[in-house]
Each structure stands twice: as structure tokens, then as C-alpha cells.
């Protein structure tokens, strides 16, 4: 589904990412790659295969939208270096036509140098496109007329229907000049947010719909 935010056209994708057609930019937050291996290094048996799915989704997304630039909106790689890093760098190598940039998040504790060595640019704080400011954590203050797009929260909502049925689904969440993106990585949880005074775009497997 397409929305316009501070004059910029944004496609909200059911793969839990956004695409800016005017600039051919793909933005996705909270991948948490390396999480399974991070747990395994600490002796916690998270199945290692659980890591593969997110690469596949991202690959298909790039094929479909052919972005010039992919921005990771923070929490790209979960914590310390581990062997899953090689998988990420191999993935970057397999997409030479695309530029990749990380806007740093709280879990991105690896040195910027390491990312750059593998063709991932690093932005420490925030990225500005048109009147949009992209940051991992929501910004506390915002210049007049600007809108903040952020990740970090992993927003979700509960939808109720007849017969006391309910579903918990990820969502895009817009309130007070802040658009929150759902977490892209599937090894993440959901934080259910209050829907009052907010515009909520629910993510179904095939489609995004406004609530």
C-alpha cells in the first residue's frame, strides 16, 4: 500500500520494509542477523537453520524492486562478531548492483570499519531524505516540518473480530510525526502498541492494510 509522508511517496511492503519509488531506496529495520549464532555461542540451543529465512526474503525483495540503495535501519547484526557474519558478507557480495548502508542501532556494536571493509556504509546517527529523518531509535526532538522514520520498537497490534477472535500481527505505526517500521527479522518479538490517536497499517502475509 502506498502513502505519502511529508511529500514523499512511500510503499509499505508486506515483507515488513518500505520502498521509496522516487529515489529507488529500500529501507528495513531490525534484522537481528547473527542472533541465532550469538545465542549458540553462549550455550543456548537456538536451531542454526533459523537464520536462513531472512536472507531469502531480502533477496526476493531486492529482485522485485531493484533498489539502488538498501538502508538497514539499525540492529542489522546482533551483538558481537560470530560466524554468521560470513553469511551476511557473502550476501552483500552477491548483490553488487545494490548499495548497502547501515544506520547504526543499539545492537550494532561491531566497528564501523568492519562493515566498510565489506561494502556496507555506516551512518552513525540518522539519514535525511526529503523531509524524512531515518534513525534506529525514535528521535526525541524533531525539526519543524520533518517526519521521523524509526525501528527499534518492533510494533505490533491485536485485531479483534467476531466470536471473541483475535490475531496479533506486526504493523507500521504512525503517530505524532513518527513512523515506526515493523522488525524485518523473524527472530524478533512484537511489542503491542496502543492504537488510540495512531494510524496503524497492519501487515498481512500478502498485503498491508490500514486499520
Amino acid at each position: 500500500m502506498q502513502i505519502s509522508l511529508a511529500g514523499t511517496t512511500i510503499e509499505l511492503l508486506p515483507q515488513r520494509a518500505i520502498f521509496l519509488p522516487e529515489t529507488a531506496v529500500l529501507i528495513l529495520g531490525d534484522l537481528h542477523l547473527g542472533k541465532a549464532m550469538h545465542f549458540r555461542k553462549a550455550g543456548i540451543f537456538m536451531p542454526p537453520q533459523s537464520a536462513y529465512k531472512d536472507y531469502e526474503t531480502l533477496h526476493l525483495l531486492i529482485q522485485k524492486h531493484q533498489p539502488q540503495h538498501v538502508y538497514f535501519l539499525g540492529d542489522l547484526f546482533h551483538s558481537h562478531h560470530n560466524s554468521e557474519w560470513n553469511q551476511l558478507t557473502a550476501f552483500i557480495g552477491e548483490h553488487p548492483q545494490t548499495m548497502f548502508t547501515l544506520i547504526k542501532g543499539n545492537h550494532d556494536i561491531l566497528k564501523a570499519e568492519l562493515y566498510r571493509q565489506h561494502n556496507i556504509n555506516v551512518i552513525e546517527k540518522a539519514l535525511i531524505i526529503d523531509n524524512l529523518i531515518f534513525s534506529h531509535e525514535p528521535l526525541k526532538t524533531l525539526p519543524e516540518g520533518m517526519i521521523n522514520v524509526a525501528g527499534h520498537i518492533h510494533p505490533g497490534c491485536v485485531i479483534r473480530s467476531g466470536g471473541r477472535q483475535s490475531l496479533r500481527l506486526p504493523c507500521f505505526y504512525f503517530k505524532d510525526n513518527l513512523l515506526l517500521l515493523p522488525a524485518f527479522g523473524h527472530l524478533t518479538g512484537l511489542q503491542i502498541l496502543d492504537r488510540s490517536d495512531a494510524e496503524v497499517f497492519v501487515v498481512f502475509p500478502d498485503k498491508v492494510m490500514v486499520l
Binding site: 549464532m37 549458540r40 555461542k41 550455550g43 537456538m46 560470530n82 560466524s83
Partner: peptide, 19 residues
Amino acid sequence: LLITQGGKMLEAYDEFHKV
């Protein structure tokens, strides 16, 4: 196997570590 290699299968590049 769970406590030594984190599961039944031995994976390449696995860094599981406990026992």
C-alpha cells in the same frame, strides 16, 4: 548432544559452546 553441540546435527561454522 544438546549440551555439547547444541543439537543433533553438526553444522558448518557452528560456534555452539556450552559443555
